[in-house]
């Protein structure tokens, strides 16, 4: 209820309009050299940062766009892109 998310098309909206798409882990790696362990890590392992993370959201009840935001997991509030990389 608390979280608001800024959709690039629709602006700031109630968090319940969106679906969470996980931490941003970059594009899928090339299959060359992938072990079951490393593939499973890409799909399922999360960094679980206690702080600001970049993550994907889909505006499923609105325009349907997929986009990333930065969110502080400690306050559960969206934040501006952080200057320093964590």
């Amino acid at each position: 209820m608390a979280l608001t998310i800024s959709c690039p098309n629709c602006g700031k909206r109630n968090g319940y309009e969106f679906r969470y798409g996980g931490e941003d882990k970059g594009p899928r790696p090339a299959e060359e050299g992938l072990t079951p362990q490393s593939w499973c890590d890409y799909v399922h392992m999360n960094n679980c940062v206690a702080g600001i993370q970049k993550e994907w959201w889909c505006h499923k009840n609105g325009c349907g766009a997929w986009f990333t935001i930065f969110r502080n997991t400690l306050t559960n509030l969206e934040v501006e892109e952080p200057e320093a990389k964590l």
Binding site: N9, C10, R13, E17, H59, K60, N61, G62, C63
Partner: peptide
């Protein structure tokens, strides 16, 4: 235009 929930539907 606004795209979003109206009576709980997109």
């Amino acid at each position: 235009l606004l795209q979003g929930p109206f009576s709980h539907l997109p």
